[in-house]
Amino acid sequence: MNNRLKDLRAERGWSQAFLAEKLEVSRQSVNAIETGRYDPSLPLAFKIAKLFGMPIEAIFREE
C-alpha cells in the first residue's frame, strides 16, 4: 500500500516524533508506515486520517 504520510507531515513541518506523539505510537511505527514497511491497522489508519482531516483513501492508496 502506498501512502502520503511523509508528504502530509512535511507540509505541516512536523517531525516523525511529533506525529508519533499525536498518534500515540512510537517513532519507529511512523517511520515504518512512511517507508511502506508496515501497513497500519484500520483503527490507526482512521486515527491518521482524522488527525490530517482527510479521508483514509486520500492518504492510503493501493499499489
Binding site: 505510537v25 512510537s26 511505527s29 491497522s41
Partner: peptide, 9 residues
C-alpha cells in the same frame, strides 16, 4: 503493548 508495529516486530 499498544503500539501495533512494535508488537508485530
Amino acid at each position: 503493548e499498544t503500539d501495533e508495529f512494535l508488537k508485530l516486530q
